[in-house]
Design a protein around this nucleic acid. Structure first.
Length: 551
RNA sequence: GGCCCGUUGGUCAAGCGGCUAAGACACCGCCCUUUCACGGCGGAAACAGGAGUUCGAUUCUCCUACGGGUCACCA
């Protein structure tokens, strides 16, 4: 028996299978249509869902589904230190709120679905060890007994000498060349160890690969004996990535651009394991404007880094997705113009059309996208969404709307549904202010002030009270107002007024404004006729009388 | 510091050797209009800098500057 074979059995006495056997028996090639992508999103259960995570997972999910493929949600919990109790459910629920659906993997309650699992790394010890044993047997990996102290010594030395830090070259000699007997004794004595890659790389060596988003990338090859298995037998990200994405038959790895730097390690690992590397798509980070510069959105400094921010503010999930799509594929906006009412899921998303540079997150543009999304909703959809949102974030508003849904529906129906819908609401937390004048409970006592003389306003309103008759017809409603204009010294026709401004105190628009302010307290509102119909004659009269007393 | 990625109007961005350098958001003006919107029309606004390759560079190469990332028994 060769030494490496002996070593492999010593390190992994329970492993009898080879990687190939494992693959053949449990992880068969997927039966998918030509060109179908298998992608995955693989977060750590830190309990914090970053908007960049939504961006990356959206790219993975869209790319898979538009190609007729599969998208997997895998949990990377190989580091227990960063784990949080309900970390998994926060992430899964968070993504699901945004309409990102996975075909396989971990669900919110921690259960799993799919035939290529388990999908939680801490439950995948066995396959990792199968692959690791194979590497040891081939002489490509070895146990390292260096202590943390020894490692930091090495680091200091290297820093002083100005060479690349890391476990490589001459610094590995202690463990790389240990005899099998020595190792056996150390292990028998219970000495902790990690398993390291015996990297064949050399400083100055080059690797090339093709990134789906960035094209050709050339880098220095890996020459560090990176850790494959930590002392507790759990793999590092690098090794887990190789094993998982191979076994799960992932075709395209989408991940943050911060991983580009370690791609040479991964490529080398795939090569040494005799495996075909997947395609890589390194998606750009989402940036934030900061003193004229750009920087990565930070979880500490920027509230909008957490997706919970968008939920709390009341941005519809679709709006956030649409916005993200506009920065992911710039042709999305053109497509949207051609397909105004289609679901964004019909958009032919393409990874290779993503821009390689990090986009600034533009809240203003989000507002605009969101306003459009909401303007296309029906009153019923709006009410339902507002109810759902306010139940959690604005109890008072919720009670009010819920108490009289028919009225709420009437309110949300105003100026909605036509070919030119208003875009007054961009997020649900704006609804309260938008509809406040429909409810005495929400209305501010003082309304906005008009620049029309008080006595003229009084004349207008007093007169209007005598002619006001509720009507569904906007034309009738408006002709009533026109008809009374002359009597109070205002011009019923705007053009005529402009031709002879000296002849009148103002025009019909001014008259309407007075009524508007008296009834709603605002200078700007949607269709006033509709508003008055929602309020009803009694309330309108009451408001006008109240206003009359005030001025 | 080494290695890598990036740099077109305020922002997001088309462009892939020859264009008056698209479009969207924001901004300004006009039109429509009972207000505000919506919509329509129009305006201002950009290839980081320098060499080179070429008949011709936003586009290809190199250098510089700036921004970002990465160098763990973290992902």
């Amino acid at each position: 028996m060769t030494d490496t074979k002996r070593l492999a059995d010593l390190l992994f006495p329970d492993i009898k299978e080879t990687p190939q056997e494992l693959m053949d028996s449990c992880y068969p090639v997927r039966d998918l249509p030509q060109g179908a992508l298998v992608t995955r999103f693989a977060p750590s259960p830190t309990g914090f869902l970053h908007i960049g995570g939504v961006f990356a997972s959206m790219a993975a999910e869209r790319a898979a589904h538009i190609s007729g493929g599969i998208c997997i949600l895998r949990i990377e919990d190989t580091d227990k230190k960063r784990e949080m109790d309900d970390g998994v459910s926060i992430i899964v629920n968070g993504l699901s709120d945004f309409g990102i659906r996975f075909d396989e993997g971990v669900k919110a309650d921690g259960s799993e679905s799919g035939g290529y699992g388990p999908y939680i790394q801490s439950k995948r010890r066995y396959p990792y060890h199968v692959f690791c044993k194979d590497l040891v047997e081939k002489g490509l990996a070895y146990p390292c007994f260096c202590t943390a102290e020894r490692l930091s010594e090495i680091r200091e030395e290297q820093e002083k000498a100005g060479v690349t830090p890391g476990y490589w070259g001459e610094y590995t000699s202690a463990c790389r060349e240990r005899s099998i007997d020595e190792i056996e004794a150390l292990i028998a004595a219970g000495t902790p160890y990690v398993v390291r890659l015996r990297s064949p790389g050399k400083p100055g060596g080059r690797v090339k690969f093709r990134d789906v988003i960035r094209g050709e990338i050339e880098m220095e090859e890996n020459f560090v004996d990176v850790v494959l298995l930590k002392s507790d037998g759990i793999p590092t990200y690098h090794f887990a990535h190789i094993v998982d994405d191979t076994l799960m038959r992932v075709t395209t790895v989408t991940r943050g651009e911060e991983w580009i730097a370690s791609a040479p390690i991964h490529l080398q690992l795939f090569w040494l394991c005799g495996l075909k590397a997947p395609k890589y798509a390194h998606v750009p980070s989402i940036m934030k404007e900061d003193n004229g510069g750009k920087r990565k959105l930070s979880k500490r400094k920027d509230p909008e880094a957490a997706v919970s921010y968008f939920v709390e503010e009341g941005y519809p999930a679709d709006a956030v997705m649409e916005y993200l799509l506009t920065i992911a594929n710039s042709n999305f906006e053109d497509w949207r113009k051609q397909n105004k009412t289609a679901s964004y899921t019909a958009f032919p998303f393409a990874l290779n059309k993503m821009s390689p540079s990090g986009a600034l997150f533009d809240l203003i543009k989000l507002q605009s996208v969101s306003g459009t999304v909401i303007s296309l909703m029906t009153a019923e959809q709006v009410l339902e969404s507002v109810l759902e949102w306010s139940e959690r974030y604005d109890r008072e508003l919720f009670e009010l709307l819920n108490a009289d849904k028919a009225k709420a529906l009437q309110i949300f129906s105003i100026d909605r549904g036509g070919s030119k819908p208003r875009k007054d609401i961009a997020k649900w937390n704006e609804v309260r202010a938008y509809i406040s004048y429909f409810y005495d409970e929400l209305r501010q006592a003082e309304g906005e002030a008009l620049e029309i003389a008080a006595e003229d306003q009084k004349a207008i309103l007093t007169k209007y009270l005598t002619v006001y008759t509720p009507t569904e017809s906007k034309d009738e409603w408006f002709s009533d107002i026109k008809a009374m204009c002359e009597e109070v010294g205002f011009c019923p026709d705007v053009k005529a007024y402009k031709a002879d401004p000296a002849g009148y105190k103002g025009h019909v628009g001014d008259v309407s404004s007075v009524i508007r302010v008296a009834v709603t307290g605002r200078k700007n509102t949607p269709d006033l006729c509709a508003i008055m119909n929602v309020l009803g004659k009694d309330k309108v009269t009451e408001r006008i009388n109240e206003y009359l007393e005030r001025i």
